[in-house]
């Protein structure tokens, strides 16, 4: 049914992604779909990487690790943003087009008060992406 799954990941908070990563791998195995793990990075040095090249390398290693762990076909795509705090959604939406994915599986928190003011990334992607979007809670 789906051939190409895009899985947005925040490498700085991998511990919070376990549920979505498992769902992604299960769906990929079920349909034999390819998975592209997408990370949003920036040019300035951050907690994870000193520069964009290092960020791309880390993301690639993460994708390879997931492929081996779950026995799926996976690669990585680094989306760059000038101001990641406010531009994650736009960067991810561009990545949906760039990867040509037909399904996005992403983690999102349980909505709270602040989501009325700042909608979650998952909510914005679901509202604007052309591909199908599965938002995984918890």
């Amino acid at each position: 049914m789906f051939q190409h799954i895009m899985a947005p990941v925040d490498l700085a908070h991998q511990d919070r992604l376990s549920h979505a990563l498992k769902v992604t791998a299960d769906l990929a195995a079920h349909w034999g779909a390819k998975v592209t793990y997408v990370g949003v990075g920036t040019a300035t040095p951050g907690k994870l990487a000193h520069n964009p090249e290092e960020f791309k390398r880390l993301l690639g290693e993460f994708a390879a690790g997931q492929a081996e762990l779950h026995g799926i076909n996976a690669d990585a795509h680094a989306a760059m943003a000038h101001d990641p705090t406010t531009e994650v959604d736009d960067a991810l939406l561009r990545a949906v087009d760039a990867t040509g994915a037909d399904l996005v599986v992403m983690q999102s928190h349980v909505p709270g008060l602040m989501d009325y003011i700042w909608p979650s990334n998952g909510g914005k992607i679901a509202a604007h992406a052309r591909a199908s979007v599965l938002v995984v809670r918890g």
Partner: peptide, 20 residues
Amino acid sequence: SLVIDTITAGGKVDAPVPQR
């Protein structure tokens, strides 16, 4: 505001929105 936010977040440019 962006500059002060970055300095007070130890050079991180992806600090949460409420800070800026």
